[in-house]
Amino acid sequence: MRMKLVARDILLHQMARKGWSNRALAEFAGCAPGTIDNLVAGRTQSLNSRRTAQLISEALGLPVEVFFVPVLSSSATRDGKSESPSDGGGVAHRKRAE
C-alpha cells in the first residue's frame, strides 16, 4: 500500500533530534538513500511500502500515523465516486434544486 508523507517538518525535526542522517535512516528502513533524500527535500511525498513508512517512524520514535497516511487508489472506491481532496474526500455533492 502506498503511503503519503503528511508531516515533512516533523520528519526533519525528528531526524535532527535523533541524529539520523538520510543515509542511515534509509539503511535502517531498507530503502534507497535517494528515497529519504527525496522525502526530506520535498521532491516526493509517497512511499510504495507501508513497511518502509513503519520503519522510518520506528527509527524516529513516533507512530507511523504522525508522518504518513495510506493512499487509497481510485479502484478502492465501491460506488465509483472519487476520494480526491477536491471533492470533499468522497462526499457526493448535490446540485441544489432550482
Rank of each mutant, 00 (worst) to 15 (best):
S46Y: 09
T52N: 13
L25E: 05
A7L: 00
R78W: 07
C31Y: 01
E98R: 14
A53H: 12
P33T: 00
V40F: 02
S82E: 11
K4E: 14
V40G: 06
R51D: 15
E83C: 07
N48T: 15
F28R: 14
L47K: 09
F68A: 00
R51M: 12
R23K: 13
D87M: 06
D79I: 12
V91M: 08
R17W: 02
K81T: 13
P33W: 03
P33Y: 00
W20T: 07
G61A: 01
A7D: 15
V64R: 09
K95Q: 13
K81Y: 11
H93I: 09
V64C: 13
S75V: 09
L5N: 08
A97T: 15
A59V: 11
I56D: 09
A92H: 06
M3K: 03
L39I: 02
I10P: 02
L60C: 09
E98G: 13
P70Y: 05
S57V: 04
M15A: 04
L55Y: 10
E83T: 14
A59L: 05
L72M: 11
C31N: 05
M15C: 00
A7Q: 07
Q14M: 08
S46Q: 12
T44Q: 11
A26Y: 03
G30N: 00
I56A: 11
G19H: 04
K95T: 15
L5W: 06
W20V: 10
R17F: 11
Q45V: 11
S57W: 02
N48W: 01
L39A: 09
Q54P: 10
A97G: 11
D37F: 01
R78F: 04
R2E: 13
G34K: 07
S82V: 12
S74P: 08
L25S: 02
E58H: 07
C31W: 01
G61R: 04
A26P: 08
Q14E: 14
R51Y: 13
E83Y: 07
